[in-house]
């Protein structure tokens, strides 16, 4: 499926879905991260906690995605990248991402996006420079792809809250998991 038609699919999926104001999501996420910073007092631990929560979200969210997105099955990891960027990002966050910076072995790509609804009203104090504020997204990607038999590593490498001009998540395919045998329904 072409990238243009995937974009249309993403737009249509977002159009159909129930929506809430992005402010509500951003403020809720922001207040929660602030509490995590107080509870853990350590950037690495906060990053890990956010990734873990994201993973828990991802393994559930994938069902919602498969049921409502009309996305075609992925024939390749490159397809997966485009579907995550054009359909899933758009459907859940209202903004698409771009795919780029493929590694030569075609197992690693970057998801790049400038508008980040999670970080809409956020400034990160210098003290918390080690925090990847939106790290929950890495967990979501990892959790969701694992449910469709792809074990990946996902990590932020750039974030606008760190003064960079865009957000970038590197996603690496570690292995394709064996499909679980179908459950016997008798």
């Amino acid at each position: 499926m072409s990238k243009a038609s995937l974009s249309k699919l993403g737009d249509a999926a977002f159009e159909r879905t129930d929506k809430v104001s992005a402010e509500l999501l951003a403020l809720t996420y922001g207040s929660f991260v602030r509490q995590l910073l107080i509870d853990y007092e350590d950037a690495e631990e906060v990053n890990a906690q956010l990734a873990k929560m994201g993973y828990n979200i991802g393994v559930r969210l994938v069902d919602d995605f498969l049921a409502k997105s009309n996305a075609p099955p992925c024939a390749s990891f490159a397809d997966t990248a485009d579907i995550v960027a054009k359909v899933a990002f758009k459907m859940f966050l209202g903004v698409p991402a771009l795919v780029g910076s493929w590694s030569s072995d075609r197992r690693t790509f970057s998801l790049v996006f400038t508008d980040n609804p999670l970080a809409e009203f956020t400034e990160l104090p210098e003290k918390w420079g080690g925090v990847w504020y939106s790290n929950v997204l890495c967990g979501v990607i990892k959790g969701a792809l694992e449910m469709v038999q792809m074990e990946v590593d996902a990590r932020f490498v750039r974030c606008t809250l760190r003064g960079e001009d865009l957000n970038e998540i590197r996603v690496t395919l570690l292995q394709v998991l064996q499909e679980k045998p179908p459950v016997d329904d008798e």
Binding site: V20, S21, L25, T28, N56, L93
Partner: peptide, 18 residues
């Protein structure tokens, strides 16, 4: 900014984790 929207399910998933 005040007109931007996200999927309600995104908020539901986040709230469940919070």
């Amino acid at each position: 900014p005040h007109k931007r929207q996200v999927a309600e399910s995104s908020l539901d998933f986040l709230m469940m984790q919070v």
